[in-house]
Design a protein around this nucleic acid. Structure first.
Lengths: 224, 224
DNA sequence: CACACTTTGAGAACGCGTGCACAAGCTCGG
DNA sequence: CCGAGCTTGTGCACGCGTTCTCAAAGTGTG
C-alpha cells in the first residue's frame, strides 16, 4: 500500500508532521524506544488529542497502554513526508537571502540537496558559493532537467517573481517555495508556499500595537 | 477612537491586511484613486467577498457603487498594522540567516529598523555589518532597553533558541519572530511567530510525493 | 426625476479543524 | 487468570473562517 492510497490527510495535519518528525528524531537519539502522545505533544508544542488524531490519519501505529514505537513511527512519517529519498533543489535569486539559503545546513539534513544556484546577474554567474557555482538564468531549463529538480526556491526581487515562477514551472518544477514579497500564481498541479518576512513582522506589529494601546491578548500562536 | 476600541479582528484577517497594504501601495503609485474589492482581491491573490469582509472589520470605509478610496484605506490599514510608526528591531544570532536578515532592505521600507545585532560568539562581536556592529549577548538587556526594542528576531541555532527567547522576554521584548528550528515557548502577553524553512520544504515534499505516486491535487495555497 | 448599473456590507449556510470525553485495548503485578 | 492502571483511537460538539447571496446604497445618464 502506497502513501497515497490511504484516506486524505488534512492540510493542518501535514503541516504538523514535520514537528513530530523533529521531536521523534531527538527522542530517538536519546535511545528512547516508545513515546506517548502526551510526551510527543509536549515536544512538538501541541495538544495530545491533536497528536493522536494526526497520527491516526497515517494508520493505527500506536499501542494502547504503551504509546508509539519511536523508530517505527519515525519511519512512517518519513515515508509520508517523502524524506526517505533525496530531493534536488534549485535556488533562483542569489542575493542576500539566496546566499544565506545556499549556505544553510538545515536543508541537507532532511534530504533537500541544493544542486543549483541560478541568477540573472551576469556579474554573479560563475561565482562560487560553497561547492556550487552560480549559473545563468538562461540555463534554467537545462539545469532543472539535468538535475531532475522538482522543488525550486524563489528568492528573487518581487518584480521578477512571477516570471521566474513561470520559467520554473515550464522547466518542470512542481513545487515552489516563494520568498519574494509578491503575489505569484502557479497552474493547477503545482504547489507553492510563501514565506514573507515583512508580512510576519507586520502581523507582530499589529498585536504589539494592540497590547500597547489596550489590554488585548494576542492569539498564542499562528496556524502555520 | 483608537485602533483597539473596535470589534475584534480575526487572526486570519490580520494575516491578510499586509497583502492589502502592499497591493494598495502599488495601486497608489499608479495614481489610481479608488479600487473595487474585486480588483483588490485580484492584486492580493484572494477572493473578493473575503476582501470586503476583512475590510468591514476595520469599519465601513467603502462607498457602494464606487469602491474604496486608495489613500484613505491605505491610511487606515497602516494605522491598524502599526505602520505609521517605527519599530526598532534586534536580530539575535548573526549566522548565515541573521546576516542576510541584517542586510535585507525589505524591513526598513515598512518601518522596521534593525537597530541591534546580537551574538554569543566573541569572535563575531565588534564585526560590522552594514551600519551596525555586532554586540555581545551579555549586553542584550542593556541594548534592548536603550533602543526601546519591542520586536526581536531569533536566528540562533535550535539549541540556543529557548534560552535566547527567555532572555529577550526578560529584557522587555514582547514580539518574537523565530527562525530557529525548535519548539520554543513564551509567556502570556508575548507573541511569537515561527518561520521554519526546513518544515516548509517538508510540506512541499509531502504534496510532491503524493502527486508523483497518485493523481491527488495539492491544496492551492497555505493559510499563512 | 426615474431607472439602469455598479459595488459594498452583512446574513446565513457550510466545511474544516480543535479538543473534550470515553470506550476499547494493552500491560503488568499478584 | 484477574483486575488495576495506562494510553490509544475516535465520536461528537463547538467555533472559526470562507463563500454564496442579496438587499441597501451609491453613481450617472437621458
Amino acid at each position: 500500500m502506497t502513501a497515497s492510497s490511504r484516506r486524505r490527510i488534512p492540510e493542518a495535519t501535514v503541516a504538523r508532521l514535520p514537528l513530530y518528525y523533529r521531536a521523534l528524531i531527538e527522542t530517538g537519539e536519546r535511545q528512547v524506544a516508545t513515546i506517548s502522545s502526551e510526551r510527543l505533544a509536549e515536544l512538538a508544542g501541541v495538544n495530545a488529542a491533536k497528536v493522536r488524531k494526526d497520527l491516526s490519519y497515517l494508520g493505527s501505529y500506536g499501542t494502547r497502554g504503551v504509546g508509539y514505537d519511536v523508530e517505527y513511527l519515525l519511519h512512517e512519517i518519513s515515508r509520508e513526508l517523502g524524506l526517505t529519498r533525496d530531493w534536488p533543489v534549485a535556488i533562483v535569486g542569489i542575493g542576500n537571502l539566496g546566499r544565506a539559503l545556499a549556505n544553510y545546513r538545515g536543508f541537507g539534513a532532511r534530504g533537500f540537496r541544493v544542486e543549483a544556484l541560478i541568477d540573472a546577474d551576469p556579474a554573479l554567474v560563475g561565482h562560487r558559493i560553497g561547492e556550487l557555482a552560480v549559473v545563468s538564468i538562461d540555463d534554467l531549463d537545462r539545469v532543472v532537467s539535468e538535475h531532475n529538480i522538482a522543488i525550486g526556491i524563489l528568492a528573487t526581487p518581487a518584480s521578477a517573481a512571477q516570471e521566474v515562477a513561470d520559467r520554473l514551472v515550464a522547466a518542470g518544477v512542481t513545487s515552489i517555495l516563494n520568498f519574494a514579497p509578491a503575489v505569484c500564481s502557479v497552474p493547477e498541479g503545482v504547489s507553492m508556499r510563501k514565506v514573507d518576512l515583512a508580512i510576519e513582522l507586520q502581523i507582530l506589529s499589529f498585536y504589539q500595537l494592540r497590547r500597547a494601546t489596550s489590554g488585548v491578548a494576542p492569539p498564542r500562536e499562528r496556524a502555520g
